[in-house]
């Protein structure tokens, strides 16, 4: 059973703020999802290799060639604010 502190930790990792009622609501919903996963875990997978990729490709490469980058003007249209060709963002403490 997921507890409120688990939800708070997940919210923290995702950098989102949850109200108490939201935390409670999501705890229930996430719990439901985890129950599905527990159900799947009942299947015997002893001799199966884990499926990490939806398609069975390998070694997909490109050559080491330089092609033109995007125009900086276009790049910076995504910036919340711009200064001297750079993205200006709120300062974040620590790592």
């Amino acid at each position: 059973m997921l507890e409120k502190k688990d939800i708070e930790r997940i919210a923290d990792l995702a950098s989102i703020k949850l109200s108490d009622s939201e935390a409670e609501k999501f705890a229930g919903q996430l719990d439901g999802i985890l129950q599905y996963v527990d159900k799947i875990k009942e299947v015997d997978t002893e001799d199966l290799k884990p499926t990490l990729y939806p398609v069975s490709l390998e070694n997909i490469f490109r050559e080491d060639e330089v092609r033109p980058s995007l125009d900086r003007e276009k790049v910076l249209t995504n910036a919340p604010e711009e200064k001297d060709g750079q993205f200006r963002v709120p300062r974040i403490m620590g790592e």
């Binding site: 790049v75 604010e81 200064k83 001297d84 060709g85 750079q86 993205f87 200006r88 963002v89 709120p90 300062r91 974040i92």
Partner: peptide, 9 residues
């Protein structure tokens, strides 16, 4: 004292 950061990608 900085309140903002500039990013170069």
């Amino acid at each position: 004292q900085a309140t903002a950061s500039l990013v170069d990608y």
